[in-house]
Design a protein around this nucleic acid. Structure first.
Lengths: 364, 364
DNA sequence: CTGAAAGCGCTTACAG
DNA sequence: CTGAAAGCGCTTACAG
């Protein structure tokens, strides 16, 4: 493949001139410019972006480590990131950590060694190894944490109001008259802790006791939904809040095994909305997280750190964007069955009045 | 960040020696080696992979352009690719074309400019621009086509036996006694053409007439499933084969509008199996494509072209791997309802005896 | 306006 | 066994 010197020779100019016309980085007189353009055309010259990256000390590439795109929650987040990334002319390096700290560390080291311009990370459980933290600090590569917190690296953050969303879900169940509400939570990560807080807060607002045995952790996979579901059903809840879609799938299997019908015998509110939920029964009532926006805003935040807008001095503070959830009422919560026979309690929760999509935004 | 010369200086050796210990590419005497290792440790030296790529003329990076990972078919394919990629120590650049030829061309040009070592492509509809085809040829960057064919670039291929899978699906419906079987097909791409061939072949084997008005194209999205579904329902089919999951979701909405129940009023067999299909009603009967394996084998094929195994001369022929589908019988096809009341016709189709996962493999 | 030259940070024959 | 030097293909001050 032709390089910049081949083009320069054919156009009888210097490499610097070729570079100037390719990048439109300096005025080049019309005659030289057209000679260069012709040479590029003849030789089918394509600048080598690896060499450019080395010279410019930036790769125009972002690295994203997701938990697992085979979990249907993540693809939309990745799309949000990718669309924002491509809109800026950047490329996206994608990795899945499977919530495994070792894999995650491995991916991050590679990204940093490849000199990505920024990193998007949904933290796997556990801590980041000290060497990775040190590398982030030494390289000053900007990081944006997505959903989950706790890397130990100073960074911007895009999260979801998990606490408020869970509160809304549980409050919805309480309003429908359920009295023994279980929770199928995620593993011990920041999002799960915030969700648990929302669950407890709703119980408190309704002056219901908190029974820790009604909260069972899981790892967001189908099998965990089944296993933890069985464990939970033994405690006889009349409703349950489930932290994600795949665990709900497993939970449905547990229900079938117990010959329980949803929503007749047990009410369900779950996280993650999907286009197909309307088409199959029971139609799930969900707390939807704005998946695409999570990704898009995370990427945009990252770009602000990479290329501060003109005039905007490099921020020295860190930003947190918290996105809202929304309750989608369908049938699994038993709304149809219950809202009619008892007046749906419209007692306003203190959270139910917020309107804007973004709750909090600004220096934390 | 420290570079190789900083390390060399501190260890009182040359950069070549540092390189030799970092890459274990040559013997280095123990004293020098330990000095180098200490220097690396002290300076927290991490080789700059951009510079290495430029020097070595390879990036250890693959580019993959998928159609759209927000369609739940693709994430598993991407995982297959990523796992195989990471197992080799490579990175993966991901892009979505949205089945748009312009986006696709744009992504491919960028990948090539970034000097990826290989490309995985699921072709968007339409043709590849001549300049992109020319670039592939000139650069000799290996390409593997995934599922869809027709780039105009000589390449290895991983496909699925769409024709056989569709045949099996339609034959299943015919055996169940359906007489007016519609088809909600994809857009005019190679996979859709092969599926149509399978559909027609099944009808022929059962000596049923082919009615082109019972075949409606779609673009694999929910809306198309609804729109084309409405169009199809007007022709009054008693069963339908649908080319993917999202269109099935749209079709279910069309059914609801027509007050039709599945499987009582209409039987459905669809493509793409998912873990959640067992949990919701109607439980879909599907032709499953081995998504993860498609991705994994495509990546492996690509690596064979990138780094031929020792002794294996660079292949001059092109390979095609065709993976099998499998029929998962659940309830949407009406099996329960019909298999009992009429003896399920066990007439063996000529395709039903194959066993191996891989049908054909070898030079085409 | 244009070009010569240095620099980005590695690798890799090739001497010694 | 080890190092000096050239090369990978760009960009970017800096002269002129």
């Amino acid at each position: 493949m032709a390089n910049i010197y081949d083009v320069a020779r054919r156009a009888r100019v210097s490499a610097a001139t070729v570079s100037a016309v390719v990048n439109e980085s300096a005025y080049v007189s019309p005659p030289l410019k057209s000679r260069v353009e012709q040479a590029i055309e003849r030789l089918q010259y394509r600048p080598n972006l690896v060499a450019r990256s080395l010279a410019q000390q930036r790769t125009r590439t972002l690295g994203m480590v997701a938990l697992n795109i085979a979990n249907p929650f993540w693809p939309a987040v990745v799309r949000g990131v990718e669309d924002a990334t491509r809109a800026r002319g950047y490329e996206l390096l994608l990795a899945n950590s499977d919530d495994d700290p070792d894999k995650e560390a491995q991916c991050l080291r590679l990204f940093l060694a490849k000199r990505v311009d920024g990193v998007l990370l949904t933290k796997a459980r556990g801590r980041l190894p000290a060497d990775v933290v040190a590398e982030f600090k030494a390289s000053a590569v900007p990081l944006v944490q997505v959903m989950r917190l706790g890397t130990g690296v100073r960074s911007d953050v895009v999260t979801v109001d998990e606490e408020g969303g869970t509160y809304e879900a549980v409050a919805h169940l309480l309003r429908l008259g359920y009295t023994k509400i279980g929770m199928l939570n995620g593993p011990n990560v920041s999002t799960s802790r915030r969700r648990l807080a929302g669950y407890r807060e709703a119980l408190r607002a309704w002056q219901r006791p908190f029974d820790p045995r009604l909260v069972v952790p899981g790892d967001f996979r189908v099998e965990a939904g089944y296993d933890s579901g069985i464990a939970l059903l033994k405690r006889g809840p009349d409703a349950v809040f489930i932290a994600n879609y795949l665990m709900t799938v497993g939970f449905m299997q547990a229900l079938r095994q117990y010959q329980l019908r949803c929503p007749e015998d047990i009410g369900i509110v779950t996280c993650d909305d999907h286009p197909w939920l309307d088409a199959f029964a029971p139609r799930l009532t969900t707390i939807n997280l704005p998946k695409y926006d999570i990704g898009r805003r995370a990427a945009e935040l990252l770009f602000e750190a990479i290329e501060p807008a003109d005039g905007a001095a490099k921020r020295s503070t860190v930003r947190t964007i918290t996105l809202r959830t929304s309750l989608h009422i369908r049938e699994s919560c038993g709304y149809e069955l219950r809202a009619r026979r008892r007046s749906y309690d419209r007692r306003a929760s203190r959270r139910s009045t917020r309107r804007a999509d973004t709750i909090g935004e600004g220096p934390q």
